[in-house]
Amino acid sequence: MNNQATKRDVILEAQHLRKEFGGLVAVADVSAKIYARTLHSIIGPNGAGKTTLFNLLSGTLPPTRGQVIFKGKDITHLPPHKMAHLGLGRSFQITNIFPNLTVLENIRLSAQAVGGDNFKLFHHYTRYHAYSEKAQRVIARVGLQGSELALARNLAHGQKRKLELGIMLASDPQVLLLDEPTAGMSSEQVPELLAILRQIMEEDDKTIVLVEHRMDMVMSISDFITVMHQGKVLAEGTPGEITANETVQKAYLGALYGDLGSAA
């Protein structure tokens, strides 16, 4: 990737974030800059603190110390429901959808959330065409055509991951935070989803922060990579720099061998 050209303004920044669970330090002093319109991956073995960092960035958990800056604004202590309105969307490592609603309704609700017709009690919801139409566009974007009226719980796992992505896209976020979007997907389905992500970033001008524990998967699609290990940032840089980094090779790959073996 042409990294120098994509290094523009910082859109999201973690400043000295720390999170302790009782005595356990899950995230210890993590600082990172995310540049607008890039795909930034956070990698590290299981237990490295990626999901915790994610929860801090998205406001799901309050940090023990440190700040989260989004577009120059301190958002550290904003409640989660304000994040979507600012333009920060997140998806979950564990599939988190509305199981008994249709695919269309899952996505439509997200479009409505940021559209501002939420306090209309006496009109039929189908009168607000804009949200259904937007949901249809998002469905096409993530490749769920034909499943609009299926109940979310009846989708195959890979489709649920796409739905999860669609729910997030429908709220028009500038930054998409994705926690292992390919978790549980078969190795044939993964490239398709990654290609969709890359396409969303390039064509829709989005910034994507992607968490992955399988290093090989993100190398080809990322602009920047942050490597985490035991709650700390081990290395940062372009995919090329990370591959060449000896510490990463030793610590990360060493820690990951067992993991990769079991995943493969």
Binding site: G89, P99, Y128, I167
Partner: peptide
Amino acid sequence: RIVNSPTGRIFVALRENESRVQMIGYNP
């Protein structure tokens, strides 16, 4: 009519998955 209104649909979403409702930008 109320359960089929934009607000009523949020009620149903709350029943289904409250944390998700919050994440897409509604205050439960």
